[in-house]
Design a protein around this nucleic acid. Structure first.
Lengths: 331, 331
DNA sequence: CTGTTAGCGCGTTCAC
DNA sequence: GTGAACGCGCTAACAG
């Protein structure tokens, strides 16, 4: 079955192609009767507009680039879901690109986006990325950008993140409420602003309780978190609370604790993580977590971006959105 | 900076647009010198062909639909990575759709693909999908399809899967080698052919050792696997081996075992899972697994599909590809 | 209210 | 070896 075109429909009804086009777009000029006749036949013949033609005409690609630092199983899927969900609904397609935590690759990906004529870009930075100068080129092409989740400390771009300081505070509040005094925080890559902000939030929240971090460690992945945790615990055995800034870290820490508790008697340690919520419930025992939704984050970012893409006049004001979080500690 | 077009380049060099087009495509008619001059200036001016125009001309969309049963963190990300990687390299874009384990939604997604003029479809079926009649429509539109991973027992479509029977056999071999006699298998949704084939492989492999499954259980998600496992263990305490057919199941089983071992003394139980390999290494202790690569699976599927899409003459022969697996039990 | 015309950017056929 | 012209499918401007 070949796809029918406007031209063919026009011939069928013996009207002009543009009449068909207008009717299908509910143009006020077309009479109600004709409109319905046209719509009916279009439906009967299963008419579907040719995107390529529409895009050529409108000078739009209806394509959004999604540049991720890596495609890991942690957090990323829910972001993709949130983004693709929103975009599909608004008739946009998604070009998913991974930078493999490599700055050069990130630049290359931006290039791919430009070459692909994307209408806009959603980007989460690699942990090697120190600034966003490479995003400046996009201005020349008038391609709107939204940086989400992983960003660096700059203010000239539209951003969507979770409220990092607040999330850390919630973690600390929880641990303190559990009676913890010697609290360790384990965070991710130091380059990332989410790391800095969560670590700072951790520190300052402890201060409000008159406490200091017992130790702060950084780990780039689960394996490093595993090692860091083991090192910390073998150095001292009076740690009574650990905050973990991500699923990735949590997995490593959990494995380390389980392994060590089999080898020697450990004091009870209260845990809390910042997480999307699936894995913590299946740890043993389940780990309390400050919940943030990757899906919502993705949706929010997509929404902001599409707003920019479809703005009739160029938007200059920069928006920085923060997503709320909440504690989950009942299982 | 506006994007430059062929027409503008032509004006610049005072030649005809078609000359530019031909030179850029290495048409033999164009003289070597002109070709190089044209290529140079095209590069200098950062010429990028307009996809919409090319696609309109070629009647292609360069879009591939990827329909997933759900977007979970388990397995799906690596599939997306494998697929998108291959497609990007071959100048195709990806339309990611989730069916949310809902048959109606799956049909709807196929419709979206048709409306989006995709050149081909990669689909993994929902656990509600009982047959593939709804894929027949795609023939009318001459849209090639590859079913991967989750499929039903039919043979008229191109398929890419892991070698399920072999993977189960490897699991059983391992458990038997560990000395297990009373082996339980926990599998996924019964509708899926991967469930059937893995369960059958489990059973027949045990038979070759003169053993029978001690029990076979089915679970649709981690939570159910958790419950099933607890039920089994509370019924009897002489289970000595468990095979789990996926990460999803493994997570639930692992949580159940950990919880129960804290409440009462359990006999040693050997575990083995079929998995992509990230999570098992962070269980405590690490769980041996039969490794299959979602990335490879995705790549292989994409490769097969693109072969069909770009075939000059319609391909009628149906291919069924199987991906190999191997045991990982050293950590 | 409807038809005519033109052009988005590209690639191909035909002519020279 | 190169140019001219046309058409892919759609829509917006202009006419009537």
């Amino acid at each position: 079955m070949q796809k029918i075109t406007i031209k063919e429909l026009a011939k069928l009804l013996d009207v002009n192609p543009s009449t068909i086009s207008r009717a299908l777009h509910d143009h006020p000029d077309i009479s109600q009767v004709l409109k319905e006749r046209i719509k009916k036949i279009a439906k009967d013949f299963n008419f579907v507009p040719n995107h390529a033609a529409v895009n050529l005409r409108n000078k739009k690609s209806k394509l959004i680039g999604l540049i991720l630092p890596e495609i890991s199983m942690l957090f990323v899927p829910s972001i993709i879901e949130g983004v693709s969900n929103y975009l599909n609904k608004h008739n946009y397609n998604l070009l998913v690109l991974s930078s493999y935590e490599n700055y050069e690759k990130e630049i290359e990906n931006i290039d791919v986006c430009i070459k692909s004529n994307v209408d806009g870009i959603l980007i989460s930075l690699t942990n090697q990325t120190k600034n966003v100068d490479h995003l400046d080129r996009l201005n020349e092409f008038e391609i709107p950008v939204v940086i989400f989740d992983k960003t660096v400390e700059q203010v000239q771009f539209n951003e969507v993140k979770i409220n990092d300081a607040e999330a850390s505070k919630t973690c600390v509040d929880y641990l303190v409420k559990c009676g913890c005094k010697k609290i360790v925080g384990i965070f991710g890559n130091k380059n990332l602003s989410i790391t800095k902000e969560r670590a700072e939030g951790f520190q300052s929240s402890l201060n409000t309780y008159g406490l200091k971090p017992y130790e702060i460690a950084y780990a780039e992945n689960s394996e490093q978190a595993f090692q860091q945790c083991k090192k910390l615990l073998s150095k001292t055995n009076d740690i009574d609370g650990i905050m973990m800034m991500s699923d990735e870290i949590m997995i490593g820490v959990n494995a380390a604790l389980n392994q060590m508790s089999k080898e020697e008697k450990l004091n009870k340690i209260n845990l809390v993580a910042i997480s999307d919520g699936f894995l913590p419930t299946f740890m043993s025992p389940p780990i309390p977590y400050v919940h943030h939704s990757g899906k919502d984050l993705g949706k929010m970012s997509a929404e902001l971006l599409i707003g920019l893409v479809e703005a009739t006049s160029p938007v200059t004001a920069v928006k920085q959105l923060n997503l709320g979080t909440f504690l989950v500690d009942e299982f």
